[in-house]
Amino acid sequence: MSTMTNGATITVIATGKSYHTLRDWGLAIGNNNCIGTPVQETFYLDVPGADGFLDYSEALTGRPIFKQRPIEIILGGKMDRRIWNSFISSIRILLHGKRVRIVFDDFPGYYWEGRAEVTEFDRVREIGTFKLSIPQADPYGYSLNDNSTPNWLWNPFDFELGVIDDPIQITLTADSPTAACTIPHSAVPFVVSVVVSEIGETGLKMTVDGDDYLLQKGENRLAELLVGDSDLTLNFSGRGSLCVYFRRRVI
């Protein structure tokens, strides 16, 4: 068993409670291929009289679209064989059918999310194993650190894939009625959210690539606000206060 993949932190989203498979349950991960390949959405058109198929998979978005991915973890440990059944029952009650968030010890900067299943329990004397899986997990891994706070979590920071993004807080006044911010590009696209806390009498307008958007109080989340291969610049005008939020992701 690889010492690099011997544990994971599992958070039950509904309760916010977290458990480490090794420290809290004494269960080690026995497989190294826990994170499966994401399933890509494809659309092929069979044209009569033509060789092969026409591939329209990226026609609408200009980029690959992923639907889901499997997460499968084989967990095993040693305990008194008389309590294994009750232990597995408690794990099923805790996790089976619940939406969970998983952070692997050897991939600490990102979490994976979806609805969990507990299956394939087996025991030989004191040694027991079972599978904890998310058959249709979200296709992306999400950074534990978003740009909402300058107080970064350095222990789980991924120095190879991680990017430090500063908080973006903007206030527009009569003296300063315009402002702009630029979000650096990303190999894996992500959507930006603009949260407006205050709007003045003149309102708030955002301009992106020549298109204007009237902002409403609260969260403004638009599919067009996508950071991809190029930097995204948001231009604001009017009166009010807002924050720009986003979370980077990996495949």
Rank of each mutant, 00 (worst) to 15 (best):
S176W: 05
N31F: 08
K205N: 13
V208D: 02
L132T: 06
K217R: 15
D165H: 14
R115I: 09
D231P: 04
T21C: 07
P64K: 01
L222K: 15
T178N: 09
R221T: 12
S89E: 15
D46I: 05
S86I: 08
E41W: 10
V250D: 06
E219C: 02
V196D: 02
I10P: 12
G238V: 07
L172E: 03
K217V: 12
T37Q: 13
A180M: 01
G26P: 02
L222P: 00
R81Q: 05
G109P: 00
F121K: 15
V250S: 06
D146A: 08
T42H: 09
K78M: 09
T42G: 03
I168A: 12
G77Q: 14
I73K: 00
V244S: 04
C34W: 07
P64L: 00
G36V: 05
W152F: 09
S237K: 05
T178C: 01
M4I: 13
A137L: 05
P167D: 02
K67E: 09
P156H: 07
S90W: 00
F121I: 11
T129R: 15
L153I: 06
A174I: 10
Q68E: 14
Y142D: 00
F190P: 07
E113S: 11
G128Q: 03
R115L: 06
S148E: 06
P139M: 15
S2L: 14
E117Q: 09
F87S: 02
P108A: 06
A187K: 08
F246G: 13
C243D: 14
M1N: 11
Q169Y: 09
K98L: 00
V118A: 02
Y142C: 00
P184E: 04
S143H: 06
F190Y: 13
R247D: 03
V39T: 13
S89H: 09
L75C: 04
L22A: 06
R63S: 08
P150F: 00
L45N: 15
